[in-house]
Design a binder for these strands. Sequence first.
DNA 1: CGTTCATGTCTACACTCGTAGACTTCACTT
DNA 2: AAGTGAAGTCTACGAGTGTAGACATGAACG
Lengths: 210, 210
Amino acid sequence: MEKRSRNAAATRQAILESAMTAFTKRGYDGAGVREIATDAGVTAMLVNRYFGSKEELFAEVVDTMLAPPTMVPGESGASGGAEAASEPETRDESRKRVASRELARETAKALAARTAPGADHLGPFELMLRSAANPRAAEILRAGIERHVGARFADALEGPGTHERAELGLALLAGVWLLRTVIGTPALREADSALLVEQLTSMLSVVVEQ
Amino acid sequence: MEKRSRNAAATRQAILESAMTAFTKRGYDGAGVREIATDAGVTAMLVNRYFGSKEELFAEVVDTMLAPPTMVPGESGASGGAEAASEPETRDESRKRVASRELARETAKALAARTAPGADHLGPFELMLRSAANPRAAEILRAGIERHVGARFADALEGPGTHERAELGLALLAGVWLLRTVIGTPALREADSALLVEQLTSMLSVVVEQ
DNA sequence: CGTTCATGTCTACACTCGTAGACTTCACTT
DNA sequence: AAGTGAAGTCTACGAGTGTAGACATGAACG
């Protein structure tokens, strides 16, 4: 661990990244300010000094983790293990050119891979699922989803009711993530990957295709 | 509120019902033993005296709320104080006679109705979604789902991979419940009911129909 | 060099939490 | 009516929470 001698920006970033993993792994209520601070090599009070309060820190974490991934290679979004949950390479514009069924399949494959028993990909879904219990956190999440994710997913669709259909797809993704990783129901954990992708693709196609 | 003068069974039941609503509304971490006790007209210590600990109380709540049919149209599904309705009829058999598409549609309609903006139907889904953040609670939930819900839903299906397909359906239900009520994303909240039922039916049919 | 001010720490407060042990009060039996 | 055991309460502890205010520190600048 490097020293980071009195660099405000670096310290702030360290706190933010520590908060990302803490909130994602333990949820808003489960993560403590002291824990976040210690992991960042800092005192608890400094967290509030930089972010105002735990709630404001959480809001910034949500904003960071739900924001679309930066294409600029210089910025590595998060070293703490937080990546945005979207398909590997395809950006919004190129997505529309891809056949709808293919979009559904790629999404299904990505979901299946990240929620596989071995993988421990922390991501915005876990952040949401583990923090939804707290009403204040839920409101912050709602705002973040509305601002970032919902619109981004809806843009990938065509036809009428894109927002509603996008959120229906999101609901399926969130539910599978919940049961497969957070809860850990055996039937879904041990499900055959190829078969799972197949079923998810079919379900997603309902809302993805026109 | 009646007096319930020193009746052990009634007191236990009162605590259990109070715990159901508290855990469902605020989640495992959010609900306090003192709050549960006060709502039952009792001291906090009596809760632990009857149930051993908060965790054991939660386990009994989970067992109670997951035991009766949850999402299937014929049932009331615990609106706050769940009543143990005994029902000797062969529900499973009659269900299988219903056309698969009809099962999907009925389920979709029930889900849409219970997650509508006005309705405040507390149920096992909220219990799960609000308590999943705590690992101990998640494990208890996993056991309960495996013991009760998964198998029951799988029994309503036919063909291969019933457990996996049942849990995929459950995932969709849970995700919609999450986004629509716990998080409260506007696109799903304000979605047209009939259209929502239609899309949900199509998505569910993928896993419900053979 | 010494001053300065952002950067970071320490102590402390005012809670809430789950729960353990000792105590009291009531309903029922004899 | 007296006794007894179950039913319920009281006090308290130890740990943990978020955060406010006072204090220390060190790097950059005159």
